[in-house]
Write a protein that binds this DNA or RNA. Structure first.
Length: 487
RNA sequence: CGGGGCGUAGCGCAGCCCGGUAGCGCUCUUGCUUUGGGAGCAAGAAGUCGCCGGUUCAAAUCCGGCCGCCCCGACCA
């Protein structure tokens, strides 16, 4: 395993793939565009999932599960929705195989009467159920989330960032009033912001999408947008106000207190395993993955060092004491007592896997009653007293969490610009980063800017800005919007 | 769907031009020595050379067809 990780400066894409490989997060699969999520990657996803799930429960949501297969007719109920997804759907047409001359082949006699779509998202199948569940204002709101896999038949894929099958959560809520639905949409966006910043240590900007970037079938799409190390933007999560579009398409009404039957208001919101890609490209370095302590499957690893059996016994006994102290504090800790690798190998491996803190303990340390502490994020090494180690590590993990956020925040700020003329805009966009500029609000202008610079409008900021003139047309603009080249 | 590249051991590759018993590095297995930043020695294991057909005494190598994957673009979370 003397292979090295490509330097970020040499080839950022290759670096990204190398980090995933060396951290053992995922493998390519035999099926194009799909990935195998390995135990390290899945443990990370479980920690993300658990934190998000708690936040969903704390805001009154409950989990449910809807089917993988959606009748084809459901998808076509909502005109814009079908428009958005039709080009990337896997379709099940047959139910059986049979032996043929080249092995198994599809049995033509097993063709389905109604073809099934593998869900690209679940609005339609869920709203079909909601129709049955909702009669009265007393049945509202419905606040449901599901953890699931979805399939979108993508042309080009990249591990975690865009795979044909991915894991995500999708929240689907139903409300009696527009105000309440909008409030829900904004609340869940704030949940995503909190999760991204507090757990992933990934700074994000909140905003709404322009019409062209909006979710198919939504009235308004809210998003959190983040800036990666290579100065490209990544959409990290979306929350949609769906208006009454799906209620109308699936005929979902409730009887209000005034006796009138009214269409229900809807939201949906989701984040996916794409966040893992964002996490990698926010913190990791040329030595491999860097994980924030709150999400790291292993927060602290102990690497024992010995020269002979007697030392091994002494060192492991000492390590055991450290292990128990940290374990009792609820720290996720691992003792790497493997015999067949030497310490240098282990150091490199745990670094590649992103373990936030490493403790090295050898005969010298036992003699002096101290340990060597190494931080993954800064690569700093320090000899510290064995006494009070637990408390020190607890606070150090917090420090690392904050420091990762602060560093990322500074990087984003350093690469965020405001420009007022198109020439400067083009130059800035070429160098990458977030660029705020005035836009006249027209889709044609947005399209032209995209064609000429590859930059898209990532979001319209939530807080109101100063009016001005569009950098492209000179027409009036309400406020600056955020441009970037994006993943 | 267009442009480019590549399919030979688990991984990375050489061999192909000029046909003649399939090779290198890493990995893996066993043993011994090592262990404070990716260890050393020794012995071993592992391949339908992407698939189908053709030429030939003989094909990884030459010819024809097909398939797959990766990268770059158009489309998307």
């Amino acid at each position: 395993m003397a292979q090295n990780i490509t330097n970020r400066d040499d080839d950022y894409s290759q670096w990204y793939l190398d980090v995933i490989k060396h951290a053992k997060l995922a493998d390519y699969s035999p099926v194009r565009g799909c990935m195998v999520i390995r135990p390290n990657g899945y443990a990370l996803w479980e920690n993300m999932r658990d934190a998000l799930d708690r936040m969903f429960k704390d805001t009154g949501h409950e989990n449910a599960y809807f089917p993988l297969f959606i009748p084809k007719s459901f998808l076509s109920r909502e005109a814009e929705h079908v428009e958005g997804f039709a080009k990337e759907c896997a379709v099940v047409t047959h139910s059986r195989l049979k032996s043929g001359k080249d092995g198994l082949e599809v049995d033509p006699e097993s063709e389905l009467d109604e073809q099934l779509i593998v869900r690209p998202t679940s609005e339609t199948i869920i709203w079909n159920s909601y129709r049955d569940w909702i009669q009265s204002y007393r049945d509202l709101p419905i606040l449901i989330n599901q953890w699931a896999n979805v399939v979108r038949w993508e042309m080009r894929t990249r591990l975690f960032l865009r795979t044909m099958e991915f894991l995500w959560q999708e929240g689907h809520t139903a409300h009696a009033s527009k105000e309440e639905a909008v409030e829900e949409t904004e609340q869940m966006l704030e949940v995503y912001r909190t999760f991204a910043e507090d757990f992933m240590a990934m700074p994000v900007i909140k905003g709404t999408k322009t019409e062209s970037e909006r979710f198919a079938g939504a009235v308004e799409t809210y998003c959190i947008e983040s800036l990666m190390q290579d100065n490209k933007a990544l959409q990290a999560g979306t929350s949609h106000f769906l208006g009454q579009n799906f209620a109308k398409a699936f005929d979902v009404t409730y009887q209000d207190t005034d006796g009138q039957h009214k269409h229900v208001w809807a939201t949906s919101w989701g984040v996916s395993t794409r966040l893992i890609g964002g996490l990698i490209m926010t913190h990791s370095d040329d030595n491999g993955l860097v994980l924030p302590p709150k999400l790291a499957p292993t927060q602290v690893v102990i690497v024992p060092i010995w020269k002979n059996d007697e030392q091994k016994r002494e060192v492991l006994e000492y390590c055991d004491g450290v292990y128990r102290e940290l374990d009792e504090l609820g720290i996720r800790i691992e003792l790497d007592d493997r015999d067949q690798q030497n310490p240098g190998y282990k150091f490199a491996q745990h670094e590649a896997e992103g373990v936030p803190l490493r403790i090295a303990i050898g005969p010298r340390d036992i003699e002096n009653n101290n340990v060597e502490l190494a931080r993954r994020d800064t690569l700093d090494k320090n000899i510290v007293d064995r006494e009070g180690l637990g408390k020190r590590i607890e606070s150090l993990l917090e420090t690392i969490q904050e420091s990762l956020y602060d560093q990322a925040k500074k990087r984003v700020e350093d690469n965020t610009y405001e420009v007022d003329d198109y020439e400067t805009f083009k130059k800035r966009i070429k160098e990458g980063g977030f660029v705020y500029a005035h836009w006249d609000g027209r889709a044609e202008t947005e399209e032209k800017i995209k064609d000429e610079t590859k930059a898209t409008i990532r979001l319209i900021p939530l807080e109101e800005g100063e009016p001005g003139k569009c950098i492209y047309t000179g027409d009036p603009s309400d406020q600056k919007v955020l441009f970037a080249r994006a993943y």
